[in-house]
Amino acid sequence: MDARKLKRAIAVRMALEGKLYAEISKMLGVSDFFVGYWKNIFKTQGIEGIKLGYKGSQGYFTERQKDVLVDWLKNKQYWNLEELSKFVGKFTSM
């Protein structure tokens, strides 16, 4: 589980159990606003509301390219940035 989502869930649970926002804030290292915000989101949207909405961007390499690159790196005794750059440059023709 992502640490951000876990922190949200813990804050919400503690708030719903009646703990003071100041106590939760101090314990989790967040603001009182954070606690209240995610508690309200949970009340209106449920567990889906506290999940992360950002799914990340599409990766630069395909799965095949990643596999080729990892295998290439595993077989090297040392890594050279210039050599790596040239190797990755070949991916444009894949």
Rank of each mutant, 00 (worst) to 15 (best):
M1E: 12
D2G: 10
A3C: 10
A3E: 10
R4H: 11
K5L: 14
K5H: 10
L6C: 13
L6A: 15
A9Y: 03
A11N: 03
V12W: 00
V12Y: 00
R13S: 12
A15W: 01
L16I: 06
E17D: 08
K19G: 07
Y21V: 10
Y21I: 08
E23F: 12
I24V: 10
S25V: 00
K26P: 05
K26F: 12
M27N: 12
L28S: 02
L28K: 03
G29W: 01
G29N: 02
V30P: 00
F33Y: 07
F33Q: 05
F34P: 03
V35L: 04
G36E: 01
G36P: 03
G36H: 03
Y37A: 06
Y37L: 11
W38V: 00
N40I: 11
T44M: 13
T44G: 10
Q45R: 13
Q45P: 04
G46I: 14
E48F: 14
E48T: 13
G49R: 05
I50G: 02
K51V: 11
G53A: 12
G56L: 01
S57E: 10
S57Y: 09
Q58S: 06
Y60H: 09
Y60Q: 09
T62H: 01
E63N: 04
E63I: 06
K66H: 05
D67C: 04
V68C: 03
L69I: 08
L69G: 07
V70P: 03
D71G: 04
L73C: 04
L73S: 04
K76G: 06
Q77A: 12
Q77E: 15
Y78M: 11
W79Y: 10
L81R: 15
L81V: 15
L81D: 15
E82M: 14
E83A: 15
L84V: 08
S85R: 15
V88C: 13
G89C: 10
G89P: 09
K90P: 06
K90H: 08
F91M: 15
T92R: 07
M94T: 12
M94L: 13
